[in-house]
Structures are given as C-alpha cells and as structure tokens.
Simulated scan of single mutants.
Amino acid sequence: MVEVLVEGVAGVGRTAGAVTLTAVTKTYPASDVLLLAGLGVTDVGENRDQEAAPKAAEVRAAGVGLRWHYIGQLQRNKARSVAAYADVVESVDSERLAAALNKAAANRERPLDVLIQVSIDEDPERGGAAGDDLWRISDAVASSDGLRLCGLMAVAPLGWEPDRAFARLAELRSRLVAAHPGATTLSAGMSGDLEAAIRHGATHVRIGTSLLGMRNLLR
C-alpha cells in the first residue's frame, strides 16, 4: 500500500510528502496501532468513540505519540469525549455539532482541528454538509475560539466514478480556500480510489483494508 501511495503521488507530479496516509484502525487493537507506529505511521483514524477513547489512552500510555483523527459520524453528546483525545475531527456536518465541539474544546491546550464533511451528491441519507450549509458551517468553525478550520473531508458516493466525485470536491475546496486561506486540507480517498483522490488534490488518504486486511466486524 505504501508503494501504491507513492506511485499515485508521483504519477500526478506531486512529492511523496504531499499526501499523508491516515491508517484506519477501527476494530483493531492498540497493539496493531503500535506496530503501525513502529513502521512509520503517524496518523490514525477511528470512527467509534467507545473504541477509540481507550485505544488512544493505551497507545499514549505506551509512550507513542500519534495524530488521532475521528472520522465517523459524531453525536453531539460524544463531543466532550472525542475532544479529549482526538487531534482532528473530520466529520463535522452541522453548526450544532461545531458548537458542541467548540464548547468541549475549551480546556484544550490548542484548538481542535476540524474538517467539514461534504456530501458530494447532496443526498441527505448519506450525511455530510451540502449547498449553503457547507459555507455556514465553515464560517461557524472558523469563528470558534476552540476550533481550527483545516479543510474538507468526503467519501465518493456509491455509483459515482471517483474522478467525477473528487473533481467536484476539488471545486468546493477551491471555494473554501478562497474564503479561508488556511483551510487547505483535503481528506479524500480510501483503499479502492486513492489514486483518483490524489489526482484531484487529496492531502490525506484514509486506508484500512489495504493495510490491515479485511475486518472482523464481530470484534
């Protein structure tokens, strides 16, 4: 997978350091996270607070510092817990969630980094911000004392060609950066479509299966 990532970056004329691999470690134990850290992984992603919180604590107790990304749908009542260990929340899709995270981040030493999750196809069933909501949420995050607006995150919709999906996302990122010049992060692309995401400017790709294999969902 590292080789594929490097090839995908080189193929569009970008340097190897331009794209960060976020290892998605949901359902895998802290021991696997520590193994990945030993291999040079610096960023990990989790999507369930009840699993991520103790895992992050165990990894930190082992003396290993990683950058923790919360990438799953987040309920407001979990904001305080997530803000205690996450470095980045990639799934902010409402002003109410942004407000809850801002309140939860009040006691942090530094602001909590935030990505706005985008609904590329604007399907309300899939989650993510769409239309004017995207710009209202981004402005709300940018004006929050406890949050730092870093950019956008999205998943290519089912039935869409990845290049079409990520080209649309790149357009939205350009509009966001015009309003908020520091919000340059673009988290897009997973094991099956990372090359297309990189072609369209992804700065982070979220890789799970290709690193750790098929998950046992009964764990």
Rank of each mutant, 00 (worst) to 15 (best):
E171F: 00
H69G: 08
R126C: 03
R67M: 09
R168V: 07
T42H: 07
G127A: 12
G146V: 13
S144T: 05
G151I: 01
A86F: 04
E125M: 14
V177K: 04
A79Y: 05
W68C: 02
A57V: 08
L158T: 15
G151T: 00
L147R: 05
A170F: 00
N102P: 10
G38W: 15
V41C: 10
Q73W: 11
A37W: 15
V177N: 02
R48K: 15
R76A: 13
L176E: 04
A105I: 04
A61M: 09
E109R: 12
A165D: 01
G128S: 02
A99T: 12
L152H: 04
I137C: 01
A99V: 10
Q50D: 15
R164K: 08
G45N: 01
R148L: 12
E125Y: 06
Q50A: 12
L97N: 11
R76H: 07
W160I: 03
A83T: 09
A61G: 07
N47S: 11
D93P: 00
V89E: 07
A165N: 01
Q50G: 12
P111H: 02
A140E: 10
A86D: 06
R96W: 15
A62E: 15
A178R: 11
N77K: 10
A154G: 03
A52S: 08
E95T: 14
L158N: 10
D113L: 12
D139L: 02
R126D: 03
A142M: 02
N102R: 09
W68P: 05
D43A: 11
G63F: 14
N102K: 07
A84D: 13
R126N: 07
A178W: 01
A84N: 14
L97W: 06
R110T: 11
R48F: 08
Q75G: 09
K78S: 11
E90Y: 10
G146E: 06
A104M: 10
L149G: 04
E90K: 06
S138D: 05
M153P: 04
N102S: 15
V88D: 00
A37D: 07
R96Q: 14
A105M: 12
S91N: 06
E46I: 07
L134P: 00
G128H: 05
N77A: 05
Q50P: 08
A140P: 05
L101P: 06
G72F: 15
E161D: 15
R175Q: 07
K55L: 04
G131W: 08
G159E: 10
L147C: 07
G63E: 09
P157Q: 14
W68A: 05
L66E: 08
V177R: 02
A52L: 14
G63L: 13
D163F: 02
G159W: 05
V92M: 04
N102C: 13
V141N: 09
I71C: 03
R110F: 13
R96F: 14
A56E: 04
R80K: 13
P157K: 08
F166L: 06
H69F: 13
D93S: 10
W68E: 00
M153A: 11
A140R: 14
A130W: 01
E109D: 14
G128I: 00
G131D: 03
S143E: 14
A156P: 01
L172C: 01
A57Q: 13
M153H: 10
A79R: 05
A52R: 04
P111N: 08
L112M: 04
V155M: 09
L66I: 09
L112C: 06
E122R: 05
A52E: 01
D139H: 13
L66K: 13
